[in-house]
Design a binder for these strands. Sequence first.
DNA 1: AACATTAATCGTTAAATTGCAATAATATAA
DNA 2: TTATATTATTGCAATTTAACGATTAATGTT
Lengths: 109, 109
Amino acid sequence: MGLTKSEIFTAEQNQLSQLLKAMAHPARIAILQRILISDTCICGDLVTELGLAQATISQHLKELKSVGIIQGTIEGVSVCYCINPKTWKLLETQIGAFLASYKGAANCC
Amino acid sequence: MGLTKSEIFTAEQNQLSQLLKAMAHPARIAILQRILISDTCICGDLVTELGLAQATISQHLKELKSVGIIQGTIEGVSVCYCINPKTWKLLETQIGAFLASYKGAANCC
DNA sequence: AACATTAATCGTTAAATTGCAATAATATAA
DNA sequence: TTATATTATTGCAATTTAACGATTAATGTT
């Protein structure tokens, strides 16, 4: 079928999986790292730095934008991207709580 | 094409994206949460608790197993699943470092 | 106005994902 | 051995994803 049954899961489960999915690609991780490292907006450079076609990068940026992880503002002829602090905070909270809920296996296999 | 160009990315980027991808589905998050909550192995119950077919659950378990996030041991007629502590630790380290590298935007859009 | 630069969108192709019924494999019980 | 319970595997259809060339849209520059 290829169609995820979102109805049977909680809003939190769907939201977290959506955020994780947006980051679950090496190109998108690379893009985020590039933005994180520069500690400011990235305008254009991405296409020349990563070894992917312009259309492909644009597509990845769109996906990151659509879940709100990054935001872009038009800066003259180019577009500047940066982290969306609100969504990033949400990410830290959600993933943090999820990962922290593992208390090193009591009686297990 | 549908084929990720893994060659052009670092081993870390590929590894992290692979781990994230394995968790990037509501059913797999639900499975992990179920294992985490019980604080022990889960044998079988999963199929009755989630609203998905047995074959589908088995498929999701296989994906989580293939990246090493969970491990399963045969317990009589059924199979018990639990978190793989080593991979979970790796997850915490990698994702933690990644998320923490964002220091709230200096001069940005 | 004409040109150049940059990014988004469209259309297409190849491949992976999701979900499930049906079937096979494995192990216990009668 | 035969039956039962549990999980894995196979095969399939619908859908989504990844990538890119070509085109379009928007903004600056000359």
